[in-house]
Simulated scan of single mutants.
Amino acid sequence: MREFIRGAAMLGRGFGYWSRRPGLMALGLVPAAIVAALFLAALIALGAFLPGITEALTPFAGTWPAVWATVIRIAVGTALIGAALVLVAVTFTAATLVVGEPFYDRIWRAVEGELGDADIEADYGFWQSVGDATRLVVRGIAAALLAALAGLIPVVGGVIATFLGVLMTGWLLAVELTSRALTARGIRPDTRKELLRRRRGLALGFGVATQLCFLVPGGAVATMAAAVAGSTMLARTLLEPTAGAESEGSDPTAAVA
């Protein structure tokens, strides 16, 4: 739990950059606002057509008593909304990072410079961003399907789907947002995942806090720049040797490109 709280606090430290670099952080609002407007329109459309979609997915319930048909359709609708929120959070992050690559690169460099790595060479450009975004969306679809299936569980499905959705999305956000800082240090994707797994509580704390902020109306736009700043600090912390690694003499960054 201590690691989880520490990870969440890193997002708070990311927000702290608004007071130190307000102009730079404000640049991060632009791509986030553009992408958020598109996703908001998609969610509104889903809400408008949801009754028809649930009926189309449950034709078998047409002959059931009205109360049971309503129950199953509410369950299906809840599952679809939960899946949509998971997918939106993941794809929003992926799309925003691609659209705002030049802006978020400047934020990343500013944080690295303040923390002592101003001269780090970043082998992370537009196409690298697109590749990471594509992988994130694929994983997001899988997480959305799992959340949707969990939402079909009678009575408790909505709660379970929400919990799984936030947890899985938080993990995926931590993976994606730390990719820039870790890739810039020559760390391969498989090693990046291993670093995150070793500090799972830390990564989940940061990712879940970010996801919860995304769920607040307007929160995704306001949080994106802070998430980039906070994830840079998270990546640096992941590279610190843990007590277990020190005792075993292992080096989590040994496998680099």
Rank of each mutant, 00 (worst) to 15 (best):
residue 1 M to F: 15
residue 3 E to R: 03
residue 7 G to L: 12
residue 7 G to V: 06
residue 13 R to A: 03
residue 21 R to G: 01
residue 22 P to D: 03
residue 24 L to F: 06
residue 26 A to H: 12
residue 26 A to Y: 09
residue 29 L to H: 01
residue 31 P to S: 11
residue 32 A to Y: 01
residue 35 V to G: 02
residue 38 L to N: 07
residue 38 L to M: 15
residue 38 L to K: 13
residue 39 F to C: 01
residue 41 A to G: 07
residue 41 A to F: 09
residue 41 A to L: 14
residue 45 A to E: 13
residue 46 L to R: 11
residue 48 A to R: 11
residue 50 L to F: 15
residue 53 I to Q: 04
residue 55 E to D: 08
residue 57 L to N: 04
residue 57 L to P: 01
residue 62 G to E: 07
residue 62 G to K: 14
residue 62 G to Q: 10
residue 63 T to V: 06
residue 63 T to F: 14
residue 63 T to S: 14
residue 63 T to K: 12
residue 64 W to I: 06
residue 65 P to T: 12
residue 68 W to S: 15
residue 70 T to D: 15
residue 75 A to R: 06
residue 77 G to P: 07
residue 79 A to I: 08
residue 79 A to R: 06
residue 82 G to K: 03
residue 83 A to N: 02
residue 83 A to P: 01
residue 87 L to F: 10
residue 87 L to Y: 13
residue 89 A to I: 05
residue 91 T to N: 04
residue 92 F to D: 01
residue 93 T to M: 00
residue 94 A to S: 04
residue 97 L to Q: 05
residue 98 V to S: 01
residue 102 P to R: 00
residue 103 F to E: 08
residue 103 F to N: 02
residue 105 D to A: 13
residue 106 R to F: 00
residue 108 W to E: 01
residue 109 R to K: 00
residue 112 E to Q: 11
residue 117 D to N: 02
residue 119 D to Y: 04
residue 120 I to C: 05
residue 123 D to W: 10
residue 124 Y to P: 08
residue 126 F to L: 08
residue 126 F to G: 11
residue 126 F to T: 12
residue 127 W to Y: 13
residue 130 V to C: 03
residue 130 V to P: 02
residue 131 G to S: 13
residue 132 D to G: 10
residue 135 R to K: 15
residue 137 V to A: 14
residue 138 V to D: 09
residue 139 R to M: 11
residue 140 G to V: 07
residue 141 I to T: 09
residue 142 A to V: 04
residue 144 A to Y: 03
residue 145 L to E: 03
residue 153 I to H: 14
residue 153 I to Q: 10
residue 153 I to W: 02
residue 154 P to Q: 13
residue 155 V to N: 06
residue 155 V to Y: 12
residue 156 V to K: 15
residue 157 G to N: 06
residue 158 G to M: 15
residue 166 V to L: 13
residue 168 M to C: 00
residue 171 W to K: 14
residue 176 E to L: 07
residue 186 G to S: 09
residue 189 P to C: 04
residue 190 D to H: 10
residue 190 D to I: 03
residue 191 T to F: 07
residue 192 R to M: 03
residue 193 K to N: 12
residue 197 R to Y: 11
residue 198 R to Y: 01
residue 204 L to T: 00
residue 206 F to Q: 12
residue 206 F to S: 06
residue 207 G to K: 14
residue 208 V to F: 08
residue 209 A to D: 07
residue 209 A to H: 02
residue 210 T to W: 01
residue 211 Q to S: 12
residue 211 Q to D: 13
residue 212 L to V: 15
residue 215 L to P: 07
residue 215 L to E: 09
residue 217 P to C: 09
residue 219 G to N: 15
residue 220 A to V: 05
residue 221 V to C: 08
residue 221 V to A: 00
residue 226 A to P: 10
residue 226 A to R: 04
residue 230 G to A: 14
residue 235 A to I: 05
residue 238 L to N: 06
residue 240 E to R: 12
residue 240 E to V: 15
residue 241 P to Q: 12
residue 242 T to C: 05
residue 243 A to D: 08
residue 245 A to K: 14
residue 245 A to N: 14
residue 246 E to H: 06
residue 247 S to P: 00
residue 249 G to S: 11
residue 251 D to S: 14
residue 252 P to Y: 13
residue 252 P to H: 12
residue 257 A to W: 02
